[in-house]
């Protein structure tokens, strides 16, 4: 049983959970991800500014924002790699910073910068990861082979990861993040550097996993993918969560936009980006 802290600074984006600040939530009923008053300061810069966010189980949550908005910083704090200046994060009802080992057993992480063991082969890395998650040896072998097969890495499974292409690295890192069947998967720019075929395979796997109750939290710059996959979207700008909701909800909130505005249009409106054309007359 985990008790959540007192009511945080509410904003337009605060959600249901915030309205019941002292509720006790069991791990099984707790939201998949819950961040409360999350702050991270780097020197004079507030990279993440009192961020409150709740993702329910089985959701496919897209986390968007321009470069330097604080996406990766937020994800790092959520997965226990970067200590927040203040605030708390729960994954599956477990406080990431109080019980990191238990929290890590519930999550799979695909970081933006892949820091995997390059001097192991793909197969060795998956077996290693399986053991680290405490999966029985027989299951590790089977799951590793299945994942290698699905992610079309089986032919290169015995090649060292250092010799893999960017896309192959992403796929092997994703396989390692999935091998223990996590409850929550954090993906930071999972489709960057991935070819369309692999991208499709990964998308299908993720969609399938969410249908089976796994929660996916991912950041991406590719609006089409987010639009196609996500059940809910959060937009962060300058460290603050400026909008959150389903695509339809975002459309309704963004006044002045057409009803069929794309996520890209909404995103640009929300973050205040203007399409200013420079005077490049010399190109003519």
């Amino acid at each position: 049983m985990t008790t959540f802290p007192g009511e945080a600074n509410t904003s337009a984006t605060t959600n249901q959970a915030l309205q019941h600040p002292h509720m006790e939530v069991s791990s099984s009923n707790a939201p998949a991800i819950m961040a409360r008053d999350l702050v991270r300061v780097f020197g004079q810069k507030m990279a993440v500014n009192h961020l409150n966010l709740t993702v329910q189980r089985g959701e496919f949550y897209g986390f968007l924002g321009p470069n330097g908005a604080g996406k990766s910083t937020t994800i790092k704090m959520m997965v226990g790699l970067l200590r927040p200046t203040s605030g708390s994060v729960w994954v599956g009802g477990v406080d990431v910073w109080k019980d990191p080992i238990r929290a890590h057993s519930l999550m799979g992480v695909l970081p933006e910068v892949l820091n995997i063991y390059e001097r192991l082969s793909g197969r060795e890395f998956l077996v290693f990861a399986g053991h680290m998650y405490g999966i029985p040896a027989g299951d590790i072998r089977r799951r590793a082979e299945d994942l290698l097969q699905v992610l079309t890495l089986i032919d290169d499974a015995d090649k060292l990861i250092v010799d893999y292409s960017v896309g192959m690295r992403k796929k092997i890192a994703l396989a390692a993040a999935l091998i223990h069947r996590p409850e929550v998967i954090f993906l930071d720019e999972p489709f960057e550097g991935i070819d369309p075929i692999s991208s499709r395979v990964i998308r299908d796997i993720l969609r399938e996993l969410t249908q089976r109750g796994t929660t996916v939290f991912f950041s991406s710059h590719i609006m089409e993918v987010v639009e196609r996959l996500c059940t809910r979207v959060g937009i962060i700008n300058q460290g603050t969560l400026v909008a959150e909701g389903t695509l339809q909800e975002l459309r309704e909130r963004a006044s002045g936009e057409e009803k069929d505005a794309t996520l890209e249009d909404l995103f640009l409106t929300i973050v205040g980006a203007r399409s200013e054309h420079q005077n490049l007359s010399w190109l003519e």
């Binding site: 057993s105 998650y133 299951d139 799951r143 994942l147 999935l178 091998i179 796997i205 399938e208 996993l209």
Partner: peptide, 10 residues
């Protein structure tokens, strides 16, 4: 993928 992740025990 479903088979790979079907077995629950962690």
């Amino acid at each position: 993928a479903a088979v790979a992740t079907a077995t629950r025990p962690r």
